[in-house]
Computed example of a mutant assay.
Amino acid sequence: MKFAYFTHVWGRPGITPGQRYAELWREIRDADRLGLDYAFSVEHHCTPQESWMSSPAVFCTGAALHTERIRVGPMGWVPPLRHPMHLVEEVATLDHLLGGRLEVGLASGVSPEPFLPFGADFANRHELTREAVELLRTALDSDGAIDFEGPVHQVRDVTLSFPSLQRPHPPLWVPTTNRNTLRYLSSVGAHTGSTMIVPRASMGLVYRHYLDWWREHGHATDPDIGYWTLVHVAPTDVEAEARAAAHITETFTKTLQYGSVRRSGEQHAPASKLSTPDILAGSGDFGFLLDHNLVFVGSPRTVTERIRAAAAEGHFNTVLGEFAFGGLEERHRAESLELFAREVIPALRDHSPYAPLPAYTPGDEEQVAARLQALGYLD
């Protein structure tokens, strides 16, 4: 398994943006020193109540100046908000700045609100994101003039000042659980992932297909499949839960505003029967989150077992852990990350949910579609 330090760079009352960014660089330094594989952030705009990270380039540049070995990237750039050639040049520059440690996450966007200030095309966001993937692959693998014909943008006889340091291009990530998109990503060798609001049983179904397709294309290594959630580790379960509970529910209900959705099923339904509305509606109930293993909170041993069980169900091999949330004190965040790195990561490093695979026969599209609908899967 692999492990990422994921941060939305959430603001909070009583702290300035400068102070929050100073904290961020300390967080990323800790993740680098403690041996995590990745440091990921987001691109969010005009969200004073939530993320204060509007520039992936700022995140990557700051991380480059404060780290030595960890791989760094956004999760991700939002291609529909810019001309894709801006993205190509930014990726090439940041890859050199990071000494070949850049990971390129691309996100098409989930709601129209962030698109409004830019007059951007929300309706065609998926097409624009795929176009950006194709232009990145074409432009960064070229040693001369670029010619590119996309569905929206065309590039004629353009030569980059320099290509990326990693050739043919830095690793690509496009988080999704859409089957058609996953089939495409498997063909181009792009990684993927999802979040705790998607039922893991649904994730497991589609990601097993994705892995099969990936292997059919003959890539040298298996893909990274990420899973995002909040993480807090303390010496004991009691201490971890007491520290984290209020900050977790505040993050989900007030910062992310998940709790405004009405539950569609029974509160005590097994995790395999949950829908996305169930998860959103239950996000303000810490007991619900623990009972359904939707956050990884506890002693090192408990968190290890929580991750192992979730990975088997959701078929992911990369934990995208958010350690700084709510009003959690920085010293508790630091202790949590230290325990995670010293005790949880070594226990899981050689574990893979990919092998052995459970008996599974891909190809029955109608059966899979019916199962996803029954589980409340939201595309």
Rank of each mutant, 00 (worst) to 15 (best):
L98P: 14
L140A: 09
E149V: 14
P117K: 05
E149S: 14
G144N: 06
N178S: 13
V158E: 11
D157P: 02
A132Q: 03
L136I: 11
R167I: 07
G119E: 00
F115N: 02
G99W: 00
D147A: 09
V158G: 01
V188T: 07
S108M: 10
Q166T: 15
D95E: 12
N180S: 12
A120C: 04
F122M: 02
E103K: 04
L135N: 09
L128T: 03
L98E: 10
D141A: 15
H126T: 07
R179L: 14
F122W: 07
G150N: 09
E131T: 09
D141S: 15
V91N: 08
R130H: 10
L106K: 06
G150V: 12
S164P: 10
S108F: 10
P170T: 09
P171N: 02
S187L: 02
N124W: 02
L94F: 06
G119R: 00
T181A: 13
L94M: 14
P168H: 08
A132S: 15
L106S: 09
L97K: 02
V174C: 04
T181F: 03
L102F: 03
H169R: 12
E103S: 11
D143R: 12
H169W: 12
T176K: 07
P112F: 00
P112M: 00
T93C: 07
G189E: 01
D143V: 05
T177R: 03
A92I: 03
D141F: 01
E103H: 10
P170M: 06
Y184G: 13
A139G: 10
W173K: 01
A107D: 06
R183L: 06
R179V: 14
D147F: 05
N178A: 12
R167D: 01
G150Q: 11
L185H: 04
H169G: 10
V110G: 13
L94N: 09
A190R: 03
A139H: 06
A139Q: 07
P175Y: 06
D157E: 15
D147R: 11
T138D: 10
E127V: 15
E90I: 00
A120I: 03
V104K: 05
A190E: 05
V133L: 15
I146S: 04
L87Y: 05
H96G: 04
R125W: 12
D147C: 07
V188Y: 02
P171G: 08
R130W: 00
P112G: 00
P168S: 10
E134L: 15
P171K: 00
T138V: 14
T93S: 12
S111W: 10
E134K: 11
G144E: 12
A139V: 09
R125K: 14
V152S: 13
P168N: 08
T129R: 01
T177Y: 01
R137N: 07
F122N: 01
L87V: 09
G105R: 04
V133Y: 10
D157L: 02
V104S: 08
L102Q: 08
T138S: 14
S142W: 01
L87I: 12
F118A: 00
H126A: 10
V88F: 04
L87G: 11
E149L: 12
F118S: 00
E134D: 15
V188A: 11
L106W: 03
P151K: 13
L182Y: 06
V188S: 10
W173H: 12
L94C: 07
Y184L: 14
L116R: 14
V155I: 14
P168T: 08
A120M: 05
S164N: 08
V158Q: 13
S161L: 06
L116N: 04
H153D: 13
E89C: 06
P171F: 01
G105K: 02
